[in-house]
Measured scan of single mutants.
Amino acid sequence: HSLRVHINGKDFEVHNADEHVIRALEELIRRGADADELKEFLERWKG
């Protein structure tokens, strides 16, 4: 899957995101994670 996440006016393109990554991202958003947390998660995932 390809996923586009809009954080703090920046678009993050997440390519080849598997279900696990997408679910983790949705969980963060549901918990009310702020932009920094989401960005950190995506950067860690992209490795």
Rank of each mutant, 00 (worst) to 15 (best):
W45Q: 03
A33D: 02
R31D: 09
R23S: 06
D11Q: 09
R30D: 06
L38I: 10
D11V: 15
I29W: 11
D11S: 11
W45F: 09
V5H: 02
E27K: 11
L42Q: 02
E26Q: 14
W45D: 03
A17C: 02
H15A: 06
I29S: 03
V5S: 01
N8E: 05
V5T: 02
A33E: 02
L28G: 01
E37G: 05
H15E: 08
I22Q: 03
K46G: 13
N8W: 04
R23V: 06
E27Q: 13
E40T: 13
G47R: 08
E19C: 09
I29Q: 03
E26K: 15
E19F: 06
R23C: 04
N8R: 04
F12E: 02
A35L: 13
L42C: 06
E40Q: 11
H15V: 11
G9C: 01
I29F: 11
R30W: 12
V14L: 09
N16T: 09
F12I: 07
W45I: 07
E26D: 06
L38E: 00
L3P: 03
R44M: 13
V5I: 14
K46H: 10
K39W: 15
I29H: 03
I22H: 03
L25Y: 04
I29R: 02
I29E: 02
E26Y: 15
G32E: 04
I29K: 02
R4L: 13
K39M: 15
A17E: 08
R23W: 12
A33R: 04
N8M: 06
V5R: 01
V21P: 01
F41S: 03
A35H: 10
K10L: 04
E37D: 13
E37W: 04
A35D: 08
E37Q: 12
L28C: 03
K46L: 13
K10M: 09
W45C: 02
G9M: 01
N8L: 05
E43N: 12
L42K: 01
R44I: 08
E43G: 10
V14F: 11
H6S: 13
L3Y: 13
L25F: 10
I22N: 01
F12R: 00
V21R: 02
K46R: 09
D36K: 08
D18H: 07
L42A: 04
R23I: 07
D34H: 09
L42G: 01
R44N: 10
V5D: 01
K39A: 14
E27P: 01
K10Q: 13
S2V: 15
A17Y: 04
E27H: 10
A33C: 06
V21E: 03
H15N: 10
I29P: 00
F41I: 05
R44Q: 12
F12A: 00
E37R: 07
E13W: 15
I7C: 02
K46Y: 13
V21A: 07
G9E: 01
F12P: 00
E43C: 12
G47E: 12
S2F: 15
D36A: 09
H6A: 04
A33Y: 10
A35W: 13
E43M: 15
L28S: 01
L25T: 01
E19Q: 12
R23D: 04
K10I: 11
D34F: 06
E40K: 13
E40F: 12
N8S: 05
D34C: 04
H6C: 04
A33M: 07
E19R: 09
E37L: 06
H6Y: 06
A24R: 11
K39G: 10
R44S: 11
G9K: 01
R30E: 06
V14M: 05
D34W: 05
E27S: 12
L25M: 05
D34M: 07
E40C: 07
H20P: 07
L38P: 00
D18R: 04
L28V: 03
E19T: 09
G47D: 09
R30G: 08
I22M: 07
L38Y: 03
G9I: 01
I29G: 02
E27C: 13
H20M: 11
F12T: 01
E40S: 12
A17P: 07
R4D: 06
D18S: 13
A24E: 11
R23Q: 08
G47T: 09
G47C: 10
H1D: 13
A17D: 03
A24P: 01
E43K: 14
A17Q: 06
E27I: 11
H6K: 12
L3F: 15
D18W: 03
V21S: 04
R31E: 08
R31S: 08
E26F: 15
I22E: 03
A35P: 08
G47W: 12
L25I: 10
A24H: 11
G32L: 04
L42N: 01
W45V: 04
D36H: 09
L38R: 00
A17R: 03
S2P: 13
N16W: 05
L38N: 00
G47S: 11
L28Q: 05
D36I: 07
G9W: 01
L28A: 05
R4F: 08
R31G: 09
A17T: 08
E19D: 08
V21K: 03
L25H: 01
E40I: 13
F12L: 03
L25P: 00
K39H: 14
V14E: 01
F41P: 00
V5P: 00
N8K: 05
E13M: 09
E13G: 02
D36N: 09
R44K: 13
D11E: 14
R4A: 15
W45N: 04
G9P: 00
L38M: 07
D34S: 12
A33G: 06
E19G: 07
H1S: 15
A33T: 07
L3D: 06
N16Q: 06
R23L: 10
H20T: 13
H20S: 11
K46E: 09
G9A: 01
R44G: 08
H6G: 02
N16D: 10
N16V: 07
K39N: 13
I7W: 04
R31M: 10
F12H: 02
I7Q: 01
L42D: 00
L25C: 02
F12M: 03
L3Q: 06
A35S: 10
L3C: 11
A35F: 14
E40W: 12
H1V: 14
E27N: 11
E26V: 14
G32I: 03
E37F: 08
D11Y: 15
E43T: 11
R31V: 07
E26A: 11
I22C: 02
W45P: 02
L28P: 00
L25S: 00
R31H: 08
E13C: 14
S2L: 13
V14Y: 05
K10E: 13
N8H: 06
L38T: 02
I7M: 04
R4H: 14
F12G: 00
E27Y: 13
H20W: 14
S2E: 10
H1N: 14
K39T: 14
R44V: 12
H15F: 10
V14H: 02
V5F: 13
R30K: 11
G47L: 14
R44C: 06
R4Y: 09
K39E: 14
I22G: 02
V14S: 01
E40D: 12
D36Q: 09
N8D: 10
K46N: 14
D36M: 07
A33F: 10
I29C: 04
L25Q: 00
I7R: 01
V5Y: 05
D34N: 11
E26P: 00
L25D: 00
L28K: 03
A33P: 04
D36G: 07
H15C: 03
E13Q: 06
L3I: 15
L38A: 03
L42P: 00
V5K: 00
L28I: 07
R44F: 10
V21T: 12
D11I: 15
G32M: 05
I29A: 04
A24M: 11
F41E: 06
L3K: 04
G32Y: 05
N16H: 10
E37N: 05
D34I: 05
D18F: 04
A17L: 08
R4M: 11
H20C: 06
H6T: 14
N8Y: 06
A17N: 03
E13Y: 14
R30L: 12
D18G: 06
I7K: 01
F41H: 04
D36P: 05
A17W: 03
G9D: 02
H15G: 03
E13H: 08
V21Y: 02
H1K: 14
I22L: 08
R23T: 07
E13N: 03
L42V: 13
R44Y: 08
I7Y: 06
E13T: 09
R23N: 08
K46S: 14
F41M: 07
I7D: 00
R44H: 10
L42R: 01
A24Q: 09
E37V: 08
R23P: 02
F12Y: 14
A17K: 04
K39P: 01
E26H: 10
V14T: 02
I7E: 00
I7T: 01
L38C: 02
G32P: 02
F41W: 11
K10C: 02
H15K: 07
E27D: 11
H6I: 11
E37M: 11
I22A: 03
N8F: 06
F12K: 00
K10A: 05
V21L: 15
H6N: 12
G47P: 09
H1F: 03
L28R: 03
F41T: 05
E43I: 15
R4N: 14
R30P: 00
E13L: 09
D36Y: 10
I22D: 00
E37S: 08
V5W: 05
E13F: 12
F41V: 06
S2Q: 13
E43F: 13
S2D: 11
D18K: 05
L38S: 00
F41G: 01
R31P: 01
I7F: 06
F12D: 00
D18Q: 08
K46F: 14
L25W: 06
K10F: 05
K10Y: 08
E19P: 08
L42M: 11
V5C: 04
E43D: 10
G32V: 02
E37Y: 09
H15T: 10
A33W: 10
K39R: 13
L28M: 12
H15Y: 10
D34P: 07
E40R: 14
R23K: 10
N8P: 00
L28Y: 07
G32T: 02
E37I: 08
A24Y: 08
